[in-house]
Design a protein around this nucleic acid. Structure first.
Length: 592
RNA sequence: GCGGCGGUCGUCUAGCCUGGACUAGGACGCCGGCCUUCCAAGCCGGUGAUCCCGGGUUCAAAUCCCGGCCGCCGCACCA
């Protein structure tokens, strides 16, 4: 499933365009550049912001009754990432073969060779074991280096004390988990609840390549979606949303199919995904459908979007099931643009344990349940008088004895023996207590759709890139265009220039991003704005002076219509944000 | 991290093997002017290169050698 060579230069063209026109470029270029870091230029920032805005529309605005957005720090204390499992699971002990240069997981190597458990063993201990047992490179037999730890987390120090370690977050997710209880309360304790965040993350990749595709610092847009695992369709919310997307179809390669060696994806409707248990929980499928719709809105055709289920060994430590959303790109074949993980209650349970805080949700039963319960009651006054300072100890021991055992002793009239102590049956009795339970405490489960935004920027550009009559035309979806309108006077005639500048002002005041250009020939100016994806170019010509109309030119068809100058703002809005066809906006212009 | 290949104006590139006339050439772009009544037209002028960085060899290095950085590909690694 890898990209083949004949399409290769598309990526190069996109990268070249991105550099030349200011979408993005490698960071720190004047110092030779650093791998895995990219800068966004003026157009790149606008495009990224628009993509993020679109993401918000799909994941938050359309789900505003159940999803809210927060923002949390990039740096977190060590404890948070110990709890999340990243300190442990993002750290691999690695040995390198001094002869062939291959690297191996040191722990796996030792476990395989010696059949012993080495979990939790230090680097030095592992090195020692390797040396003592003369373990060598399993491939070439060469000598092995010392064991080194490799952790993808960027480490830093919080404040002046070096022991106060912090980590840069490798995902925004922990910000949501840490804040779950608070947001849950703010949202008046309703489930399901999605908490979204868009922000920078950092991962110290060993050797990042592939330009914008694999970065050491990038932007993630993700939702941690919390729901009651025993009642995912609480209040019919799941059903409501599912029915809204009933027509959604997803191309999926299941883990099972992959194990069979299958490479072709199978198409499932959203309903089939759930009914045939392709997904471990229905919400996972639902958010996959939203994710696909969103990626389509970036300009990727549905047949180039596939969900691939990860094999157990490929999954992150927190996931019970994971699907990657893959998009086909020219150079690298199928690349992941989002991950959809069923994180269960892993994160909340870990934070509960590490923080000591109760992070459980509470759900009231419709009717409180009453439970009859037998309780052992001791004559505490007697107990205290008799055993004095040892009484509390006995109380504790008594709790560990089952009610049935005590009951039996009472019935038989025998004393209850607890270690060396004896309690006569008349000092103890069984009481039936009625307990009222109004609801249940539980840890919500979580599904997580998570997007790499820079990848989306790249994918969007690549799918928009086209060549027409030897000119580059960036056919971005209109609503994503960094610059929305261009205004040109046909030639540098004072009257036309004046009118064009007025129109420019008017469009700017209406809220659009507009370029004005009166240099060179009109054709050159059209070409320049085509290349950065400006959807519509407006030209003020001599007819404008006569009858107050201007031409609107469609980037994709190069066709033109004439529109009254006073109707331009509305026409542009309709064209860019309401999907109107050019021909609906005014009178067609012949020729040109 | 290992191996292979590569790195020259904003972009694409000539030159590198065979060191010297290279003050590094061209094209496109970009800027200014002229021209121009709708698709990168034309003319004039201009701008623009740490020849990736550092060291070495040499009288002399874009060119040869070594080290590093960065990129691409393969391996390894990888939410």
């Amino acid at each position: 499933m890898s990209g083949k060579t004949h399409e290769k230069d598309l990526c190069e063209h996109v990268m070249e365009l991105a550099r030349r026109r200011g979408f993005f470029w490698q960071s720190y270029e004047i110092y030779g550049g650093v791998a895995g870091f990219y800068d966004l230029g003026p157009l790149g920032v606008r495009l990224k912001n628009k993509i993020v805005e679109l993401w918000r529309r799909y994941f938050i605005q359309q789900h505003q009754d159940i999803v809210v957005e927060i923002e949390t720090p990039i740096i977190g204390p060590a404890k948070v990432y110990e709890a999340s499992g990243h300190v442990e699971h993002f750290t691999d002990p690695i040995v390198e073969c001094l002869k062939c240069g291959r690297k191996f997981r040191a722990d796996h190597l030792v476990e395989d060779k010696l059949k012993i458990k080495v979990e939790g063993m230090s680097v030095d201990e592992l090195t020692k074991i390797i040396r003592e047992h003369g373990i060598t490179c399993p491939i070439c037999g060469g000598e092995l280096s010392e064991v080194k730890l490799f952790n993808l987390l960027f480490k830093t120090i919080i404040g002046p004390y070096s022991e106060n370690i912090g980590y840069l977050r490798p995902e925004t997710a922990q910000g949501m988990f840490v804040n779950f209880k608070k947001v849950y309360e703010i949202m008046r304790k309703k489930l399901p609840l999605g908490i979204a965040q868009i922000g920078r993350v950092a991962r110290n990749e060993i050797s990042p390549r592939q330009g914008m595709i694999r970065l050491r610092e990038f932007t993630i847009a993700e939702v941690e979606f919390f729901f009651d695992p025993e009642d995912p369709d609480e209040n019919g919310i799941l059903s409501k949303y599912m029915s809204e997307r009933a027509k959604s179809k997803l191309l999926v390669i299941t883990a099972e199919a992959r194990k069979r060696g299958e490479e072709k994806p199978e198409e499932f409707s959203l309903e089939e995904m759930v009914r045939e248990k392709i997904v471990a929980t229905p919400w996972l499928a639902y958010w996959m459908a939203v994710a696909k719709e969103f990626v389509e809105a970036l300009g990727v055709p549905g047949h180039n979007i596939v969900f691939e289920e990860k094999l157990p060994e490929e999954r992150a430590h927190y996931a019970l099931q994971t699907f990657d959303q893959l998009v086909k790109v020219s150079r690298w074949g199928w690349i992941e643009v989002s991950g959809h993980a069923y994180r269960t209650d892993y994160d909340l349970s870990r934070h509960m344990k590490y923080s000591g805080q109760d992070l459980r949700a509470f759900k009231q039963f419709e009717k409180p349940k009453t439970i009859k319960k037998k309780v052992v009651v001791v004559d505490k006054a007697w107990l205290g008088r008799t055993f004095r300072s040892r009484a509390p100890e006995i109380m504790k021991l008594l709790e560990q004895i089952s009610v049935e055992e005590v009951e039996r002793a009472i019935v038989e009239g025998k004393p209850i023996k607890i270690n060396e102590f004896e309690i006569p049956p008349d000092r103890i009795r069984i009481v039936e207590k009625v307990e009222k339970i109004t609801g249940r405490h539980f840890l919500p489960h979580v599904v997580e759709p998570s997007f790499g935004v820079e990848r989306l920027v790249y994918v969007t550009l690549e799918y928009a890139y086209s060549v027409k009559e030897n000119r580059v035309v960036l056919k971005l979806p209109r609503y994503l265009a960094p610059i929305e309108v261009a205004v040109f006077p046909l030639v540098q005639d004072e009257r036309l220039v004046k009118l064009a500048k007025e129109l420019y002002r008017k469009l700017v005041e209406a809220g659009f991003y507009v370029v004005y250009d009166d240099s060179g020939s009109i054709g050159r100016r059209y070409a320049r704005v085509d290349e950065i994806g400006v959807p519509v170019a407006i030209t003020v010509d001599f007819e404008t002076i006569e009858n107050g109309t201007v031409t609107l030119r469609d980037r994709d068809t190069w066709r033109q219509v004439r529109v009254g100058i006073d109707k331009v703002v509305e026409a542009v809005r309709k064209f860019i944000y309401e999907g109107a066809k050019l021909e609906e906006l005014g009178q067609p212009v012949g020729g040109g």
